[in-house]
Design a protein around this nucleic acid. Structure first.
Lengths: 358, 358
DNA sequence: TGCGGGGGTGCAAACATGTGCATTATAGCG
DNA sequence: CGCTATAATGCACATGTTTGCACCCCCGCA
C-alpha cells in the first residue's frame, strides 16, 4: 500500500531497519562483516518490502551495464533470426541483456545506433549488418567498445574487434562443384548487390570453380540485384526477375546468393512452367527453415546459424573479460535435397511450356 | 591519445575548460544562463574531446531509462518478427531502446525476464508471449510498470495494462464461412495447444460457424497439438502429423491455427499425393510472407502485424506519459489465394494415390 | 560612495549503490 | 584496571548528471 510509486531503495529499508544504508547494502550481498542476525533480519525485510536492486545505479558504480548492442539489417531475414537466437541464448545464461536494433541497411541509421549504444554504455557490440564500413568500425574502436562481427571482414589494426565467419568462397566453390559433378556446364549465378562482401566472395567461388573445371566464363550467366535494394523481402522478387532474365542464356542450373533468392527463382520456374529439377537445378545458401518446405525442397549450403550467434556472444564475453580471443571460421555443409538433378541431355531449359491449368 | 580508456565525462571537460562541471552541463544543454562565449567554447571542446553523455547517469537522475522490455516466445516465428519490426520502428523514432527477450514459452524464464526488466528499470513492457499468466501480470502491476499486451487477454482490474488485439473469434468465423460458401461441409481444424487463448477463440469461431450453418459438429474433425510443444519449429511437424491423422475422417477442407501449421498440412499433402486444392482446401492464419511462396500460395487470414507492433509501442508511450489510453482491436482480412477451391463433387479426399516419382 | 540588481558561475544535493576507512563497543588478557 | 585486538557498524566518497540556490562581481543610479 505504498503511496508513492517509487521503487523501494536500500535507503528505505535502512530507515525501517534503523541502520545505515551501507549496512543494508552489505547485508543484502551477504557480507560476513554484518552479524548474522542483522543480515537475516534485513534480508527478510527486503523481501517483504518488495525490494529490487536498481541496476542502473549499480551500472553507474561498477562501470559495467551487462548489456550488449546487437545490430542487424533485418529481423525478417530467417538467417539473422537464428543468429539472434543463438546470441540471446548465451546472453541470457550469462545474465546480460541484448539491445536489439535494426538498421535496414541504412548507413545513416547505423551510425545513430552505434552512438546510441555508446551513450548507453553497452559492454560490447555484435554486428551482423551486411556492409558496415570502415568508418563505423573506427568509431567503435575509438570508443574502445569490444566488438564481434558476424560474416564480415575484420580490419587488421583493431585490437578489440574480432569476427566469426563462414568460408563463403570455399562454400560457394563446393556448391558449384557439386553442380558440375552432375554434368552441368551452363551454370548461372544470382547475386545480391546489397551484401557486397559476401556476394563478392560467393561469386568468386563460383567463378573459380567454373574456371578450374575448364568451363569458359560467360558473364551473361551472372546477375546481381542492385545494391540499392534495402529490404529483405525484396530478395524474393529479385530472384524471380533475375531468373527470368537469365533463362534465354541457356543455363541448366543456378547457384543463388541465398535461399530467399533461390525461392524467388523457384517461384519464377513455377510460373513459367519450368520443371525443377528436371529442366533446371537450383542451389541456395544458408539452409533456412523455409528451404525444406518449398517444393521441391532446396539443395543448399548449410550455415551453422545458431553456432554463429552463440560463438559471437561467447567471444564477446571473453573480449570483455580481457581474455585473448582468436577469430574463428565455422564449417558449412552442402545439404542435398531435391532441387538438383543431373543435367538434362537435351538442349537447355529454354522451351517454355505453359503450365497446366488447375 | 588518452591513456585511460574511461570515456570522457563533463568533469574532464570542466577541468580542461577551467570551469565547474555544472557550467559544462548547462553549456552542453544550451542553457541561456551561461554566456554565449563560454557556451560555444565548451561545446567545441566537448566535440574535440569526443564526449558522449552517459545515459546511465542521466537515467539514474531522471528516473527514466528510455528503454522498454519486449518479451516474445520465439524470434523464428515470422508473425512475431513482423510485430517486433513494428515495435522497433516506433521505438527508434522516439529514441527509446528495445530490450528483446525470448521466453521459449517457458513460464519459469518469463518470470526471470520480468524481474530482469524491473531491475533494469525499463519504462514499460510489451508482451507478445502466448500464455502469460495472471501471476506475471500481477507482478508487473505491483511494480507499477506500464504494460501493453499483444493478442492477449487484458485483466479488468489492472490500471496500467492495455492490449492491442485482433478479433480471433470473428476472423476464424469468417474463414470457415468462406469454406462453407465454397460448398465444403466436412471441415477440419488443426490447432496449437501451446497458445491456449487464441487457439480456443479460433476454435470457437470455427465451431460456431459450422453450427450456424447447420453442420452437425464432429469432434473427430478437430485436432490440437499438445500444449507441451514449446518451439515454433514444431508447428510444421505438428501440422503434418495432425493432417495425416485427420484424413480418414473424410474432410474436404481444413482451417489451421496459423500459416506454419498450414504449411505442415500442405507438406503432408505433397507427400501423400493429395492434390491441393482439388482434393483438399487449406486455410491458414496470420498471412506471413511464407504463405505467398509455397505452392499453391495459401489462402489465409491477414493480421496487420506491423500495425500491431506499432500501435503497441505507441500505446505504451502514451501510457508512460500518463495519458489516457484505450484497448484496441485491429481489423483482419481474409486473403484468398490458391489453396482453396470448391468442394469436390466426389467423395472426400481419402483415396491416396502414390505420388509420381521424379 | 554606497547600494541594488542582474548576469554569470560555483556549490551542493539528489538519484541508488558499493566500499575503504574510521569509529564504537566489547571482550580478553596482562 | 587499563590496554589492545576484534567484531560490528556508520561515515563519507565515488560513479556522472541535473538543477535550485547562493554567491560574486560589476554596473548604474541615487
Amino acid at each position: 500500500m505504498r503511496m508513492t510509486n517509487r521503487p523501494v531503495s536500500i535507503q528505505d529499508i535502512a530507515k525501517v531497519a534503523g541502520v545505515s544504508h551501507s549496512t543494508v547494502s552489505r547485508a543484502l550481498r551477504d557480507s560476513p562483516l554484518i552479524s548474522l542476525e542483522v543480515r537475516q533480519r534485513i534480508q527478510r525485510l527486503a523481501q517483504e518490502m518488495g525490494y529490487t536492486p536498481n541496476q542502473v545505479a549499480q551500472s553507474l558504480k561498477e562501470r559495467r551495464t551487462n548489456t550488449v548492442g546487437v545490430v542487424i539489417t533485418s529481423i525478417s531475414d530467417p538467417f539473422l533470426a537464428r543468429v539472434v537466437l543463438g546470441i540471446e541464448e548465451v546472453a541470457q545464461a550469462a545474465g546480460i541483456q541484448v539491445l536489439l536494433s535494426i538498421s535496414d541497411n541504412d548507413p545513416q541509421r547505423e551510425i545513430q545506433l552505434i552512438d546510441s549504444f555508446h551513450r548507453r554504455r553497452v559492454d560490447g557490440v555484435i554486428s551482423s549488418t551486411a556492409r558496415i564500413d570502415e568508418t563505423h568500425l573506427r568509431r567503435l574502436v575509438k570508443m574502445g567498445i569490444p566488438t564481434v562481427l558476424i560474416n564480415q571482414a575484420v580490419p587488421g589494426d583493431a585490437p578489440l574487434v574480432r569476427a566469426v565467419q563462414v568460408d563463403d568462397y570455399a562454400s560457394a566453390m563446393q556448391a558449384v562443384r557439386y553442380l558440375l559433378s552432375l554434368g552441368h556446364r551452363a551454370i548461372g549465378y544470382l547475386g545480391a548487390g546489397n551484401r557486397p562482401r559476401s556476394n563478392w566472395l560467393r561469386l568468386s567461388g563460383y567463378r573459380d570453380a567454373l574456371r578450374m573445371a575448364g568451363v569458359s566464363a560467360n558473364e551473361s550467366w551472372i546477375r546481381v540485384a542492385p545494391a540499392e535494394h534495402r529490404y529483405y523481402a525484396e530478395d524474393v522478387a529479385d530472384g524471380q526477375a533475375m531468373l527470368e532474365a537469365l533463362l534465354p542464356t541457356g543455363i541448366t542450373a543456378v547457384f543463388c546468393y541465398n535461399d530467399t533468392v533461390a525461392v524467388g527463382a523457384l517461384l519464377a520456374c513455377h510460373q513459367l512452367g519450368i520443371a525443377v529439377p528436371e529442366q533446371l537445378s537450383i542451389v541456395g545458401f544458408d539452409d533456412v527453415e523455409l528451404a525444406q518446405y518449398v517444393t521441391p525442397p532446396l539443395t543448399t549450403v548449410h550455415q551453422p546459424k545458431l553456432r554463429l550467434g552463440r560463438r559471437a556472444m561467447e567471444m564477446l564475453l571473453e573480449l570483455v573479460e580481457e581474455k585473448p580471443v582468436q577469430n574463428e571460421v565455422l564449417p558449412t555443409d552442402l545439404v542435398v535435397r531435391r532441387s538438383t538433378a543431373p543435367a538434362p541431355k537435351t538442349a537447355p531449359a529454354m522451351e517454355r511450356r505453359p503450365r497446366e491449368e488447375r
